[in-house]
């Protein structure tokens, strides 16, 4: 299946063009999600896509699966309910950096801890785009935002490290420049039995790029190319050369840790056996 056929198959008819601004990376990330589902040939009825609120979370409405555009920060709790109630569904969460790590931060770490089989794709554009450019917990220190006119003084989350520390069992990162890698990582995340995080570094040319003089959409994509380092190379990089750069690829993966819904099925067997 070529890309055009994938778009025709997995997007709801008549819903394109999408609402995202010119050059927004959300379309690339969403395309990578669709490519991953196509590669795995998942039946559409067996996929649930749950999003929160914000620019990236509009993705669910375009996709022809069982879809929920939930509430701000709450995509993961909704998804937890869907997955636990019907574990046969492949549950994919599409969320943004503000949605997942600020208002939804508590839900995020607890879903990691439970190791529930969700595939969470965080569209990280470093800013609140829908509301016009306010800082998020993933806005890099020093960057400008409409609510940080003098520059962001707070340190930003390293989300992949946070996920790992909280108990996620598959943690990866790619960028919209590395679109092929991104869809490959989403494939691995969906295949992984347990909580998967894929951080998709994306560009918001309008609300982040302009304020921070990053250039246009193409320049922001080139920035990703020039600052992302594949993990194998990253591991060999001396500390001083890591400054300002970030690793991409599979950053952490562990097999064999009990997945939550499987653990619950064992609990049911125990509860019923004890009768």
């Amino acid at each position: 299946m070529n890309m055009e056929e994938m778009i025709n198959k997995y997007f709801r008819p008549g819903r394109l063009p999408h609402i995202w601004c010119p050059g927004c990376g959300n379309g690339v990330v969403t395309g990578c999600v669709v490519k991953a589902i196509a590669k795995l040939d998942l039946p559409k009825d067996d996929v649930a896509v749950i999003s929160g609120i914000g620019c990236s979370s509009r993705a669910s409405g375009y996709l022809d699966f069982n879809t929920v555009h939930s509430a701000h920060g709450r995509a993961i709790p909704f998804a937890t309910g869907v997955k636990l109630a019907d574990p046969k569904l492949n549950v994919i969460v599409l969320t943004g950096d503000g949605d997942a790590t600020a208002i939804g931060g508590n839900h995020f770490i607890h879903a990691c801890r439970r190791n529930i089989d969700l595939t969470v794709v965080v569209y990280n554009n470093s800013i609140y785009g829908m509301t016009g450019g306010q800082y998020s917990p993933m806005t890099p220190t020093g960057s400008k935002a409409t609510t940080a006119p003098y520059g962001m003084i707070e340190p930003d989350f390293n989300l992949t490290e946070l996920a790992r520390a909280a108990g996620a069992t598959f943690v990866a990162r790619a960028t919209t420049f590395h679109a092929q890698m991104l869809s490959d990582l989403i494939v691995k995340g969906i295949q992984h039995k347990g909580f998967s995080l894929i951080e998709a570094v994306s560009a918001c040319p309008i609300s982040f790029g302009r304020q921070n003089k990053m250039g246009g959409p193409a320049e922001m994509m080139m920035w990703q190319r020039d600052h992302a380092v594949p993990i194998a190379a990253w591991d060999k990089l001396p500390e001083e050369k890591k400054e300002g750069k970030f690793p991409i690829g599979v950053l952490y993966e562990v097999e064999g840790r009990k997945e939550y819904t499987e653990a619950y099925d064992e609990l049911i067997a125990m509860a019923q056996g004890g009768k």
């Binding site: 070529n2 890309m3 055009e4 778009i7 997007f11 394109l16 063009p17 999408h18 995202w20 050059g23 927004c24 990376g25 959300n26 379309g27 690339v28 395309g31 919209t176 420049f177 679109a179 092929q180 959409p217 994509m221």
Partner: peptide
Amino acid sequence: CELRCPDYAIFVH
């Protein structure tokens, strides 16, 4: 172009 287009507006056959 197809790989990077955020709008699914260009395809290479």
